[in-house]
Simulated assay, not measured.
Amino acid sequence: MGSTEQNPSQRNQTALVEFILLGFSDIPNLQGFLFGLFLVIYVIILIGNSLILIITKTDPSLQTPMYFFLGNFSFLEICYVSVTIPRLLADLCRHTRSISFLACAMQMYVFLVLGLTECFILTAMAYDRYVAICRPLLYPLVMSNKVCIQLAGGCWVSGIPVHIGFTYCIFSLPFCGRNQLHHFFCDIPAVLTLVCGDTFFIEMLIHVIALLVVTIPFLLILGSYVKIISTILKLPTTTGHAKAFSTCSSHLMVVALFFGSGIITYLRPKSIQSTETDKFISLFYTIVTPMFNPMIYCLRNKDVMVALKKFLLKCFFCDSKLMTL
Rank of each mutant, 00 (worst) to 15 (best):
M1Q: 10
M1C: 08
E5A: 14
N7H: 09
S9V: 15
Q13I: 12
L16W: 08
V17Q: 14
E18W: 00
I20S: 01
L21Q: 07
L21P: 03
D26Y: 03
F33E: 03
F35M: 06
F35N: 04
F38P: 00
Y42D: 05
V43R: 01
L46N: 08
G48I: 06
G48H: 01
N49I: 06
S50R: 07
I52Y: 00
D59M: 12
L62N: 03
P65C: 13
P65G: 11
P65W: 06
L70T: 14
S74V: 14
L76R: 05
L76Q: 08
I78F: 12
R87A: 12
R94H: 14
T96Q: 13
R97P: 01
R97G: 01
F101P: 02
L102F: 15
L102Y: 12
A103V: 10
C104V: 06
C104L: 05
C104G: 08
Q107R: 03
L112N: 11
G115L: 09
T117M: 11
F120A: 13
L122K: 00
T123E: 11
R129M: 04
L137D: 14
L137S: 13
L138C: 09
L138P: 00
M143T: 01
S144G: 15
C148P: 02
I149Y: 06
Q150H: 09
A152E: 05
I160Q: 03
I160K: 04
I160W: 12
P161K: 08
I164T: 14
I164G: 04
G165W: 13
C169Y: 10
F171E: 07
L173Q: 12
P174N: 15
C176A: 15
G177K: 01
G177D: 08
L181T: 01
F184Y: 15
I188C: 10
P189Y: 11
V191C: 05
L192G: 02
T193H: 12
L194R: 03
L194F: 05
V195Y: 07
C196L: 05
G197Q: 00
F201G: 06
M204K: 15
I206Q: 10
H207Y: 12
V213R: 04
V213L: 09
V214W: 09
V214A: 13
T215G: 03
I216S: 00
F218Y: 13
L219M: 12
L219V: 11
I221L: 01
G223I: 04
S224M: 09
V226M: 09
K227Y: 09
K227H: 10
I232M: 06
T237D: 10
G240N: 08
T247L: 13
L252H: 02
L252P: 02
V254E: 06
L257Y: 02
G260Y: 10
I263D: 02
T265C: 14
R268T: 10
S271G: 03
T275A: 15
T277Y: 13
L283K: 03
Y285H: 13
I287F: 09
F292P: 02
P294Y: 03
M295H: 11
C298H: 11
L299Y: 12
V304A: 09
V306R: 10
V306Q: 08
K309N: 11
K310E: 09
L312R: 11
K314V: 01
K314N: 11
F317H: 11
D319G: 09
S320Q: 08
L322W: 09
